[in-house]
Amino acid sequence: MRGWLVLLFTVAVVFPQPRRERSPEDNNPLAGRPEAVEAGRKLFLGVCSACHGPNGEGGRGTNLTHGRLVRGVSDRELRNSIRAGIPGTDMPPSPLPDEPLWQIVAFVRSLSTPAAESHVRGDPDLGRGLFFGKAGCTSCHMILGRGGFLGPDLSNIGLDRSLRQIEVAVLDPNERLATGHQGATVTLANGTSITGVIRDQTNYAIQMLDAAGRAHRLASQDVRSLEMNARSLMPADYSQRLSKAEIQDLLAFLSRQAVRTRPEVAP
């Protein structure tokens, strides 16, 4: 089965232009159902991940998490591409019947669907309490001005990331280090040291942010040494610190952080 689903991206080119109006028959009958997404994820891991990666982020095959690549086509067009393959590419046809194909479509859609638009189990109010309390997230992360400086701002995380991406970031922060947030200690030529995160680093200059939110602009000639953290500053043990239900509550809260979906300020 290796190779099928490769270059799914090219469906955007293969399908006729201009795009016709979509009808209800174009929609996935299983769209948005958590159990279908989960079943699709298992199928995907079995037959698609060799090329598209376990999280759909690409490898030999195309990255499927960029919304604009798969959002331009209907569910039916996605299913047809998986079923028939894409001529002229490494993407082979699939013998699967309709239901598992729709499950895969549901999972592929979830990869690029912002968490704010996904169904998330859990209680966001309890999640808020965890975020600003017991879970300790605000020692590094900020939401609308409340919290710390070193981690990525999460004010709009529900629109910026899919549910899956948020879940991986919470449970396995070392799976991918957030660019611009890698922990480090710099020792300056005058002997003082600065601990914080590296926002940018070249052979000639380093930009750092410390835990107090101060930006440091350093020229390399003023730096004696640089010690980088191999692992994320984010604790990797949230699956032990929090119960499964609490994790879901936290994910539900984070998924709702979407500034643009809030009501407009009245004139």
């Binding site: 001005g145 701002d153 004010s155 939110g213 930006a215 500034v259 300020v265």
Partner: peptide, 16 residues
Amino acid sequence: LHRTTGALLWQSQYAE
């Protein structure tokens, strides 16, 4: 935005 991190502090739509 926060001046040293770029974190979003508030956002107001002031015209439609």
